[in-house]
Amino acid sequence: MIDRNDLGSWMEGAPHEPDYVKGSSIGLPAEGPGSVAPFWRRPAALMIDWLLCMGISALAFQGDALANLVLFVVVNVLFLTLFGATPGQFITRTHVVPVTGRSPMILRAFVRTFLMLLLLPAVVWNRDSQPLHDVVAGTAVVTY
């Protein structure tokens, strides 16, 4: 018979490897420029981008909700394709880099942005601190 001690407990947390370095399986350094961005920078950059889009929408489109979404998609796809970072990511000193595959950045940016709007892929993360929308797009958010 299996004992509770054989299975562990939910109180012990998720299984993890103590020596594992986030980003190592996708070829990123452990720390410094090019390493996985700290968690707090992602929501900070997202909030800056949303506030920017909402401000532009309020001025140009009377705050229309659809205009907010369209502006968010345009800002993300345009800035990620041209510069590798959105305005919020520039401010938080992060940028998006391709880590797998050979698809063009415009396609990666569109896939990443579309999945981010679905919300669920943005809250499911892997052990490399990559949300699902980055895994699918083959990108990672790193510091510089």
Results as ranks from 00 to 15, higher is better:
2 I>R: 00
3 D>I: 00
6 D>E: 03
6 D>Y: 00
8 G>V: 00
9 S>R: 02
9 S>I: 01
9 S>P: 03
10 W>M: 07
10 W>K: 02
12 E>W: 00
12 E>Y: 02
12 E>N: 10
13 G>R: 04
13 G>N: 06
14 A>I: 04
14 A>Q: 10
15 P>Q: 01
16 H>L: 08
16 H>G: 09
17 E>W: 02
18 P>L: 02
18 P>D: 07
19 D>I: 00
19 D>W: 00
20 Y>R: 07
21 V>Y: 01
21 V>W: 00
23 G>H: 01
26 I>C: 03
27 G>K: 00
30 A>H: 01
31 E>P: 04
31 E>D: 13
32 G>H: 03
32 G>N: 04
34 G>N: 05
35 S>G: 12
36 V>T: 10
37 A>P: 08
39 F>N: 05
39 F>E: 05
44 A>I: 06
45 A>T: 02
46 L>K: 05
47 M>N: 07
48 I>A: 08
51 L>G: 13
52 L>A: 07
53 C>V: 03
56 I>Q: 09
56 I>F: 09
56 I>H: 06
59 L>I: 05
60 A>L: 15
61 F>Y: 09
67 A>N: 01
67 A>P: 01
67 A>K: 01
68 N>H: 12
69 L>P: 03
71 L>T: 03
72 F>S: 06
72 F>K: 02
74 V>D: 13
74 V>W: 09
75 V>M: 14
76 N>V: 08
79 F>M: 15
79 F>E: 07
79 F>S: 14
81 T>L: 07
82 L>D: 05
83 F>P: 10
84 G>Y: 01
84 G>K: 00
85 A>K: 06
85 A>W: 02
88 G>M: 04
89 Q>A: 10
89 Q>G: 09
90 F>I: 10
90 F>A: 10
91 I>L: 14
92 T>G: 09
94 T>V: 07
94 T>A: 08
95 H>E: 13
98 P>W: 02
100 T>S: 15
102 R>C: 12
102 R>S: 15
103 S>A: 15
104 P>K: 09
104 P>T: 04
105 M>G: 13
105 M>Q: 12
107 L>P: 08
109 A>Q: 12
110 F>W: 12
111 V>T: 14
111 V>I: 15
114 F>Y: 12
114 F>K: 10
117 L>G: 13
118 L>H: 06
119 L>N: 07
128 D>W: 05
128 D>R: 05
129 S>P: 08
130 Q>R: 15
131 P>S: 13
133 H>C: 10
136 V>A: 13
137 A>V: 12
138 G>L: 11
141 V>T: 08
